[in-house]
Amino acid sequence: MNSSKQQHRVLTLLYLAPTALILLVFIVIPIIYTLYLSFFDWNLIAPTKNFVGWRNYLTIFTDPVNQKVLLNTLGYIGLLLVLNFAIPYVISIIVQFFIHKMQGVYKIIFFIPSLFSLVVGAMVFAWIMNPVSGPIALLLRQIGFTLPNWTNSGGLAIVMLCLITNWKVFGYNFVLLLTGLGSIPQNLIDAAQVDHIPKWRLIWDVVLPLNKSMAFYVLILTIVQGLQYVFTPINVITQGGPYYGSSNVLYHTYLNAFVLYKTGNASALAILTFVIFLILLFLEIKFVEGRDADAPI
């Protein structure tokens, strides 16, 4: 009996070891090391690192460029929530409750762009939205308008970069939200229809509360994934410009680490992002707790 127990323990370790080892070496230890680096002044190459205490963190909040980047990040979050969360949510409600056929077809078509690389998306949108020779610019010129040169304005560039991620993420989030709506018990919907409750009341009072946990999951995902997704079009199209106008905290971290070689600054920014994401994770667990009852283990 004892030896079988021993065997059981060895097997458990053996089966968990590959995942645990990779997570330890490439996630846990790196996080600790990044935290360590955030207290030093270093350039990624020099043999010595200078301890600077909290200075890198102070820089984040006092340096005007960093402040600008943090503000941009808030802008990104707001826009991503509208484009990648609110709009897909409205559309998924329409598809689930307001039409009666073709649901499957829309699902299949909407999902297609999420199969493609954001580099492809960035390239195609750089063509479509080219302020001089792109199709939209030409179309606008024919009716007497001009497409503003969005690469010269941080705010417009942010909108454009968010639209590119929206192209990719829209269908993915739509499928998730539609799944949530589809799992609402049909008899609740039917009952409301028998009682002649107006549809918008049904949606507001029954559907939205019942779909709360899925919606919150997608909302958190939109922020966490969206800020990382938007990195690719930033790097391909604007490199954070004009003058950091379209940079966000993740891109600025990369820029500090691998272009400016300010490892300490980059690490402090990375730790800040990590803490924000941890808070979001905590919120996810707290809000989505209702689902915990049938958690897999």
Binding site: H8, R9, L11, T12, Y15, L16, T19, A20, L23, F26, I27, I29, P30, I31, Y33, T34, L37, L44, V224, L227, Q228, L250, T253, Y254, A257, T263, A266, S267, L269, A270, I271, T273, F274, F277, L278, L280, L281, E284, P296, I297
Partner: peptide, 28 residues
């Protein structure tokens, strides 16, 4: 398999989904 702290280990695994790539990229 049954082992102690299973929920915690599982939770730690799943939590890695929420880790931004910037916090691991320099050491990696």
């Amino acid at each position: 398999f049954h082992f102690r702290g299973k929920r915690w280990v599982y939770f730690a695994f799943v939590a890695t989904i929420f880790i931004p790539f910037t916090v691991t990229m320099i050491p990696n």
